[in-house]
Design a protein around this nucleic acid. Sequence first.
DNA 1: GTTTGTGAATGAGTTCACAGCA
DNA 2: TGCTGTGAACTCATTCACAAAC
Lengths: 208, 208
Amino acid sequence: MSPNPVIPDSAVSRLATYLRVLRDPRVEGRQHVSSAYIGDRAGVSPDQVRKDLSHFGEVGRPGVGYDLEHLIGHLARIMRLDRVQTAVLVGAGNLGSALVQYTGFGQRGFRIAAVFDIDPQRVGTNLGEVVVEHVDRLAQRVEELGATIGIIAVPRWACQTVADAMASSGLRAILNFAPAKIEAPEGVNVRSVDLARELECLAYYLPG
Amino acid sequence: MSPNPVIPDSAVSRLATYLRVLRDPRVEGRQHVSSAYIGDRAGVSPDQVRKDLSHFGEVGRPGVGYDLEHLIGHLARIMRLDRVQTAVLVGAGNLGSALVQYTGFGQRGFRIAAVFDIDPQRVGTNLGEVVVEHVDRLAQRVEELGATIGIIAVPRWACQTVADAMASSGLRAILNFAPAKIEAPEGVNVRSVDLARELECLAYYLPG
DNA sequence: GTTTGTGAATGAGTTCACAGCA
DNA sequence: TGCTGTGAACTCATTCACAAAC
């Protein structure tokens, strides 16, 4: 699925965290960082940090640590974050609107270049810097924009339909915010975030 | 931390998913459901479903399956979802506003009963059905409302301060949307959702 | 003395396989 | 025959421990 070495998904997630830590302004000025430093900021053991980083060949110097700039570049390349990734979003409701305007994506190198909805009331309205388009135009716009990632922010009952449309539009990655399982063809990577489930998991540990 | 048996966090997350599947309107009318049915809808193997459910004693009947209503009640009690859980949210920015108005929480038994911010421009404004209050009032309002869960939707630099305030206000669970590690005292459960990281993980698997 | 890279040991979680009940 | 409950086998990930490099 990827020219990168096969590493556990949990490790991929941690690598993204390391990169976030290294790009934090507070680290600026440092020449080197140690696995202990990264681990502390990321909430991970130093051993784990070294193991994760060693999946991609030697990058650190014993007794010194990792060269900051070099490591950032290395990680960014591995994670495909050395370029701006273009995403499109379907579902201009409450959550969709917030996601489009969420500055965190832009800061981390993602651009939501188009937003789609099926509701004529919403089509044509402004959302941040984009105009909501009819979902019929998805495939055409994906191609025009060279988008690679689709974000689903529609109700549960519509999410599979949207996912199918995304897959046949050529998108290779889908981030789904609807609380339902999504089937996608081989080669299309789906990741789901169920916001309510996060609260539910917390509830389990509550006393009483 | 909980009177419930100690089960892996991954299992807790799946239990929440099973409950979502069982409460789906499409299941209504059924008397029994099998582990195979649940597993199919949840994207999990039947073995895994049975293992997860068996952590809490026998609930299914061989040859028949699980009694639908009974299982829903059982899971809801285990997950503390047999009552409305009251949450408060700090950070009335883009993301915070969307979360307050997100209907998915209410549908799943959570009520965001108060919203706080530190910006005088935002304090006093309406957000859905609540009025934004100054974060100084957090502790008092948590007590008045009997809230148990805190949701953090502030910028990274402010999240630890907010978490500290939440912990000392008596909240026992925190859902953090700021992209940073949070330290909390023993007994306070923190869960972090980094929306940009989800996209980053997807980027790793992109071709090219 | 400090810190990396990595094989070995440990541990956690998932899948298997089957006995037992309907 | 269909389906659950569960110990055993297995897989996968993390932690340990130490040699080598600075």
